[in-house]
Amino acid sequence: MIKIHVDMDKCQHYGQCCFEADDVFALDDDGKLVYQEEASDDRLADLESAVDVCPMQAITITSA
């Protein structure tokens, strides 16, 4: 299991992460980021990409 955390003080809701892992990250109707706090281990590669492409570097993932 992978734990996902987004620092919402840093997040600027650009949604770049949504294009890497759209099953975990999404922008809601108001343009605000919403995300799943857990994902299965087979999602690691896409989640690492999401971490990399975040302009604000607001995403951290940890193996639980």
């Binding site: 809701h13 949604g15 949504c18 922008l27 809601d28 109707d29 108001d30 343009g31």
Partner: peptide
């Protein structure tokens, strides 16, 4: 501009 969610 201020329409991020509409760009997908």
């Amino acid at each position: 501009i201020d329409r991020t969610a509409d760009l997908a």
